[in-house]
Design a protein around this nucleic acid. Structure first.
Lengths: 152, 152
DNA sequence: TTAATTCAGACCATTTCGGTAGGATAAGAT
DNA sequence: ATCTTATCCTACCGAAATGGTCTGAATTAA
């Protein structure tokens, strides 16, 4: 159940980034600290953070007193970047293995729907920054007024 | 790769529904016909169509000269209904296993983003009917003008 | 009765998901 | 130097989902 469910990796990764965003930007947070504070499996989070480092969102310092900090300010990190660093580019589509004739198959007309969905999803994620999340109060969870994006 | 990829089941199911929508509404189409015409694995499609029957979108007639027809007119079948019949309700969210304090965790602020995405996705799928697809020409596939939904 | 068809269920191979384990490497503290 | 604290890297692992297949029963037209 759940067609477009968000994987744990993304949830955990976002939590780590958000946690770092409310800390002193200079202070290195260890994986142990982040994991216990956020209630996330430590070794799993370690791998996830590695992906965020490769994505240029987190900086690390090795050795004793090492740890992680955000690579940029929270205003400059979008939801989309975190997701992309962890899962690759968002691609709402069917696996296009074999190209078939456009006439006899409904495939191409469906693609228009997929790409419209993809466009809207991408829009929300790119317009939402980590800094936006920090100051959001906890209002009703479903059917919210959705004032997050700039809503074209 | 592909965060919100559409599963084969949905692709195949939609193709079957669209195929039926362009046939004579009285004529029963066998599973063999639909599968070969659409280039879909026959036995797999058979199971998928069973779900569409349970969802009230397709009618079946058993025995020789049996087959499938649409249960309603294409104008009254939305993309969303097909998807829901095959995958259950769309739920863009993280598995909410354990409820944690709203204060110390960024979870609740993320939920606002998930629900906004879900709302927009659902909107596109509910506003697109099978009849809409039939007359759509095959224009450019990516970054299309997206004139499908009523675009609030 | 027989042929054509849907219907129901078990089965199955591969991939993905979520997570663990162990060690190599780096750097600060003593 | 070497010890401790930490990141980094790679392999591994169980369970679930994905994408199918196979077999056989039930139904119906000819």
């Amino acid at each position: 159940m759940g067609l477009m469910q968000i994987p744990r990796r993304v949830d955990y990764g976002l939590r780590a980034v958000i946690y770092l965003s409310v800390q002193d930007p200079e202070r290195c947070c260890s994986i142990t600290e982040i994991a216990t504070q956020q209630g996330v499996p430590k070794k799993f989070l370690e791998k996830i953070i590695q992906d965020l480092i490769r994505g240029g969102l987190i900086k690390s310092k090795r050795g004793a007193c090492g740890g992680y900090t955000l690579a940029r300010s929270p205003e400059e990190i979008s939801f989309y970047e975190v997701i992309e660093a962890l899962e690759g580019p968002i691609a709402v589509n069917v696996c296009m293995d074999q190209h078939m004739s456009c006439e006899q198959l409904p495939r191409c007309s469906m693609v228009n729907v997929w790409s419209e969905v993809q466009r809207k999803v991408t829009e929300v994620f790119t317009n939402t920054t980590i800094a936006d999340l920090k100051r959001k109060p906890c209002r009703d969870l479903i059917g919210g007024s959705a004032s997050l994006s700039s809503a074209a």
